[in-house]
Design a binder for these strands. Sequence first.
DNA 1: TGCTATCCCGGTATTACTATCACGGCCATG
DNA 2: CATGGCCGTGATAGTAATACCGGGATAGCA
Lengths: 87, 87
Amino acid sequence: MVRPPLSPEERERGRRLGALLRAARGTRTPGEVALASGVSLEALRKIESGRVPTPAFFTVAALARAVDLPLDQLAEALDLTGTALSA
Amino acid sequence: MVRPPLSPEERERGRRLGALLRAARGTRTPGEVALASGVSLEALRKIESGRVPTPAFFTVAALARAVDLPLDQLAEALDLTGTALSA
DNA sequence: TGCTATCCCGGTATTACTATCACGGCCATG
DNA sequence: CATGGCCGTGATAGTAATACCGGGATAGCA
């Protein structure tokens, strides 16, 4: 009747998303990326650490842009096919 | 002091996102896209009509995939550059 | 040693997102 | 004219995302 809690798969997917963004960041500091993307530092840390399984689209887009990571490549790496989602 | 309400620009951006997704859908019915993407029909309607300014990343990715719209093209069309945001 | 800056984690508060239900309009079909 | 399907909107409910606060840990410098 409401919103079903996120499944373990969705959380796992969130962790992978964070890992990819962190890897793409490379040697740049979190603060630098946060500033460049316009995303708050705390939001960035939570996303990178996977504690935010399903971040907002524009937040991810801004971060991916800041670390020069194509969105399509990111989506493909996360294998959206089976995990369409709905969160 | 907590989470600031979305700005008019962010809402406008959400409306454009919905418009792009609807345009990319073409002649296909909402129900068909909802089924193909795994997103609920109501969520799809709200997103397409722009009543959901900042949908989740995976939700948008699933919809874009269902309507064969590259994410990068979508992000670029929305001109994220100045509206990094943080929502 | 003490000071400063940065990063990370936890908890709290408020808003936003998705799902379900309900009502009404539109169109096609019987 | 009646019925059913699809669409759109509004209300309600519950979970998730983000901002702010505090604490702790680490590194660099006076």
